[in-house]
Write a protein that binds this DNA or RNA. Sequence first.
DNA 1: AGTCCACAGGAAGGGCAGGCGA
DNA 2: TCGCCTGCCCTTCCTGTGGACT
Length: 413
Amino acid sequence: MSKLLNRVVAPENIFAGYIEKESVFKDKRVLTAAFIPEKIPHRENEIKQLTNILAPVLKGYTTNNAFIYGTVGTGKTICCRYVLSQLEEAAIAQSKAVKALYLNCKMKRVADTEYRLVAQLLKGLGVSVPDTGLPTDVLYHKLFEKIDEKRQHIIIALDEIDSLVRKTGDGFLYSLTRMNSELKNASITTIGITNDVLFLEGLDVRVRSSLSEEELVFKPYDAVQLQDVLQERVFEGFREDVVGPEVVSLCAAIAAQEHGDARRALDLLRIAGETAERNNDNKVTDFHVNEAQDKIDVERTVEVIKGQPKQSQAVLITIIKLIEAQKKQGRWSDKRLLTGSVYESYRETCGRNNLKPLTQRRVGDLISELDMLGIISTRVISKGRYGRTREISLALNETIAHKAERTLADKFY
DNA sequence: AGTCCACAGGAAGGGCAGGCGA
DNA sequence: TCGCCTGCCCTTCCTGTGGACT
């Protein structure tokens, strides 16, 4: 056996250096947003409130539905998951039938439609259903039967619930609340998580009144609080003395500028660690954090662009090229484009690339989608007698735009 | 004040792929 | 195999818009 190991890590092996070198990380999973830590600093009150809302299920009582608000990276998801895991643990210890289901409604092709959401809930309860093919009411019926088959309490946490409602309407929320009133044995508590403070206002009155019985607001972390959050993770995630306090402060300060986003702070720390490791450095420094910041911005955008459908990419490369051409001609003042000219050039792009051009109506939607993704920015303007149109400009900085162009240049002429 | 332009954007529905049950 | 269901992408048709022009 030892002979075999020796052979695997023999010095001449190209991976030998990697295996022998001690990593700066102790446990890298700790530095991801998905990790649920033992302690969540500066969220004690919110955890207590949510615990108080859900605690009655452990005594067999029904509980109120709840709604959690807060901007990105304020700890809504992690606190909710933490409380749910603690609740399930307590329920098992006391032999109570409590089941918690957590779903992220924004996850593409997982729970981003009504059908997929109900299918995921069924999967969470151990019932497997096809990804497509069944009428939605059949799925609801199955869900109803599964939940009501015994005396139990089901807690359904729907993260980023606003994106699903925006996409499919609030019909599923109405169905869930109505289902709850018809159950004979079981009961359901719904927890909605969103970063849209005005989300409830657009809902059906009946849904709104039953869904928002309790409301929790998560405020953004400030730089000092972020430092505490990071310090916990540094202790668990990195080897001793690898990350100094100045690095933690820098990550916290950068993330605090971006609305107190803890997720961003963690990403910075993790990628700074990866950069240090790749450079064969034993300590993470400010230099690695700055490198990480650039890398996150570029990679995040490039990944989003790569994930777009081909037609959307064709529209984007058309916009990038048009802006570049205008810049080359020194026409800085008119570097904003109009829908009509973009569509015309887009058709040419399609012609060169054997792509069937879409209608202007559809391209208008693709432009709106690119706008929503923050890749371009648009503004509806009226040019009086010369019509109403959209002014389009790139929302990316030079470096990212250049990288985006190079990414798409491989696919389009 | 009325007209006109070049779209924006909503609504409805077609076509397709994929799955299910009879 | 067929009819029916789904999600998804797309087109067609339509009304609305706001400021320059007449």
